[in-house]
Design a protein around this nucleic acid. Sequence first.
DNA 1: GGACAGGAAGTCC
DNA 2: GGACTTCCTGTC
Length: 278
Amino acid sequence: MRVEENGAGVLVEYLGDFSPELIFECGQCFRWNREESGGYVGVAFGKAARVLKTDGGFLISGGVRDFEEVWAPYFDLERDYGGIRRRIAVDDFSRRAAEFGTGIRILRQDKWEALCSFIISQCNNIPRIKGIVERLCESFGGEIAFEGKTLHAFPRAEELAGLSKGDLAGLRCGYRDEYILEAARACSCKGYLDFLSELETPELRKELKKLPGVGDKVANCVLLFGFNRLEAFPMDVWMRRAVSAHYGGKFCPEDVFGEFSGVAQQYIFHFARQSKIV
DNA sequence: GGACAGGAAGTCC
DNA sequence: GGACTTCCTGTC
């Protein structure tokens, strides 16, 4: 991987799977928006950036330091997605899904942000989730100057922990308001997220489900997108349809897809939603 | 065009 | 098994 700073940002020569469109629009994150140019602008870990696909890799705004400290880990660039695709292509259906979704990567998102975002996701469609998350950031997140505009960071848990349901009324997030506040109170406790990070996946899942509004589905999304546990397999309505159509009633993800079940899940989720061939 | 129903990356009691 | 908040999307 060659990295070179130029006037526009950091030019990264990257031959592995990397499609900004697929990464940002496969439903794993809610803060990146497409521009006319085809690039994406978004915010993660308190930093704003633009990502643009190039012939041999991609261009990302900012300097080498931000790239190495924030963006390279965020995009999990060390991981070989070609190998993962080969591993999870165990039958015709998963092979087609992986081929269709080549370019997807699982982002290593902020843990608290993933928890809060997927609490909001329950029983919501993606455009609405993005709306609620955006209002949350505008209302309570710190300001970030980016190319003459003001963007907002995802609010830190401590910034929400002291709020009341009334304070969140403007978000129009419905009954999820109390869940958000409880999660914020938990995550603002010193050492809580570090404690969680040390746990094995089954214990971590159990611990996350102690939070109100966190059931099996949300817990698995947080495991996959926040804690980078690539074996976690969120089972939502789309997956239920796809899995029952192709694998029948009894289906154990790890038996079929192994340690990268969660990545398989993301290819299938995207395939099911985009192609509607389920 | 606007009204309407169905459903949305579910969880709780 | 029904309730829960709000609103996106497709249909007529």
